[in-house]
Design a protein around this nucleic acid. Structure first.
Lengths: 186, 186
DNA sequence: CCGTACTTTGAGCATACACTCTAATTTGAG
DNA sequence: CTCAAATTAGAGTGTATGCTCAAAGTACGG
């Protein structure tokens, strides 16, 4: 994979894989479906990827990376910033948000690497939320801030989970309500 | 299916199906796996069920029914009651809770019947929570109570989703925190 | 241009899947 | 005990899956 043609094909395959995981779920994402949608034959796929799982892992990495807001603001963003960034991610990158949720459920069941990746990412995200909470409410203990962050992050995931099932579900209203309630609860 | 033996076999098959969906996910639940775990051969399975999907739907029905607390208290339970009942369901019937979440994601993608069933159940649950909120806070408009109920129910699902991935995750602490915050936010 | 490294082709392989069929066995009402 | 009905056994069906491979085609540095 060094020629331009190969790189372009690789992109098309990853794009097809992403859209398929988003629309059909992990098990609906077959080699045939990927190849059809990417306009490629199995031989080409396996010239660029070692396995179907490798392609899926690439897309999982994309999704996990896209969840986190601009890393340059690390350590300065408010809780509201973090929630707004997440709303933006879910509404503007619907496919990746769907991948993110679907993978968490289907992928983690039988794939230890995906499970580990997802859990590590979750922990990092909770830490970031906890840091923002601590900054805004210095009176809270670290453990309490962490606990509140965990409630908020898992709840946001629940909202996204519902949005995966019902595209009309308004993520922003409910995510902001969660934030308001969380602040009111301190 | 009229003899005692058949009914017992049916139970064993459903039990195997439930535990497999909970531990392996929907796509890991194959006829062979079900039959192995139930100590049955494919011929027996298809003597009792028309298809794999029929067995899965039976388990889905079990899971959906188990989410709802005692229907006799309908119209009298408080929001705290409803949350406590949900915590009890998740912690005491872990398998069915796993089925409930896994089905919502994997089943709804490509199975319209499961999707419809899940959505209808969700709506009924939201209504029940909304009624409790309205009872405790009569000043809120119906629409506002509904919105708050929807935030709470989807957030609780998010907590369960995380518990599916991490068995050590303490559902009760976070679910109660959500309730507290929701009440504080009024 | 040449030649090599890269890419594409598409038939083909082994395996796993949901499901079927017939024959044998077991059940239990009369 | 009898016998029809229900259940089980287990080999077998067709199809879809992930993946391979040899051959043909293309890109591109020299």
């Amino acid at each position: 994979m060094r020629y331009k043609a190969g790189l372009e094909t690789r992109d098309r395959i990853l794009e097809a894989t992403r859209s398929l995981i988003a629309s059909e779920g992990l098990d609906g994402t077959t080699i045939k479906a990927i190849c059809d949608q990417a306009g490629v034959l199995p031989g080409s796929f396996y010239n660029l990827f070692d396995s179907k799982e490798q392609a899926i892992l690439s897309v999982v990495r994309q999704a996990i990376d896209a969840v986190d807001p601009d890393p340059e603001h690390l350590g300065t963003d408010s809780l509201a910033d973090l929630v707004e960034a997440y709303i933006k991610f879910v509404t503007e990158q619907g496919d990746l948000a769907r991948v993110y949720i679907r993978i968490a459920i289907s992928g983690s069941a039988n794939n230890h690497e995906i499970w580990g990746r997802t859990m590590r990412h979750h922990q990092a995200r909770v830490s970031r939320f906890a840091a923002a909470i601590s900054r805004e409410h210095p009176s809270l203990s670290d453990a309490e801030a962490e606990r509140r962050a965990e409630t908020l992050v898992t709840s946001l995931n629940g909202i996204t989970l519902h949005r995966v099932m019902d595209p009309d579900f308004d993520v922003s209203i409910h995510a902001r309500a969660l934030l308001t309630d969380a602040l009111a609860g301190v």
